[in-house]
Design a protein around this nucleic acid. Sequence first.
DNA 1: AAACAATGTACGAATAATCGAATATATGCA
DNA 2: TGCATATATTCGATTATTCGTACATTGTTT
Lengths: 115, 115
Amino acid sequence: MPQSDALRRFKADIFQALGHPTRIAIAEELSRQELSAGQLIQLLELEQANASQHLAVLRSKRIVIARKQGNQVFYSLRDRALGEILESLRGYFQRHLREAKADLDEVRRMEARTR
Amino acid sequence: MPQSDALRRFKADIFQALGHPTRIAIAEELSRQELSAGQLIQLLELEQANASQHLAVLRSKRIVIARKQGNQVFYSLRDRALGEILESLRGYFQRHLREAKADLDEVRRMEARTR
DNA sequence: AAACAATGTACGAATAATCGAATATATGCA
DNA sequence: TGCATATATTCGATTATTCGTACATTGTTT
């Protein structure tokens, strides 16, 4: 592949890091306010280890900043642009609402079948 | 997880679909202009089957629209917002250039070692 | 119809992502 | 020091992605 392959990988890494519902949820919460790991766990009803793993992914891609204070670790989004991207996807979703709903319905049907 | 889990999955799906360097490259080309599968293959120097698989991913998440014309299939980005998101990541990259460069360097070192 | 061109799909192997359980590493406090 | 709390890491099993090879499909041309 020609040109700046490494730059593409960089971008792809960021997308990929956000390519999981739990990490989306974390990023959305953090775009509103700084939160400790524990608070995130409580808010999103996550397993402790699982949350920590997802936070590690976000940290490794530098999407999130960790600030240690005493016993706990406070997380925040590193760049507000990421919050805006998340926000702009809301618009995207609205714009394609009809089809998006069809997609979501299909997801639900799949879920129903799998249970 | 509370609240609209399905909506998060929807968003995560979009990120995940863009979470691969080849698909980023495809999306970036298509944000500039409509292109046939063959043109993409040539531009990005991809294997035919591989390109087709990546295009299938982008189609399945409706990131891309396929228009069949005679023998060939022309692709375009479904929503310019996606192009803008891609563009805004360029800004993100600039803003964190120093660290981003360190990341890229590390990627390169990893690559060098693996070869 | 036969050959060709462009694209898509199926399959299997290799690699990567995800999860829960258990364990480790701080830090705070009695 | 000893114990509790908050967070991170390791491990193994499971599932998902990715890739190349081979084949299928569709439309075009002769």
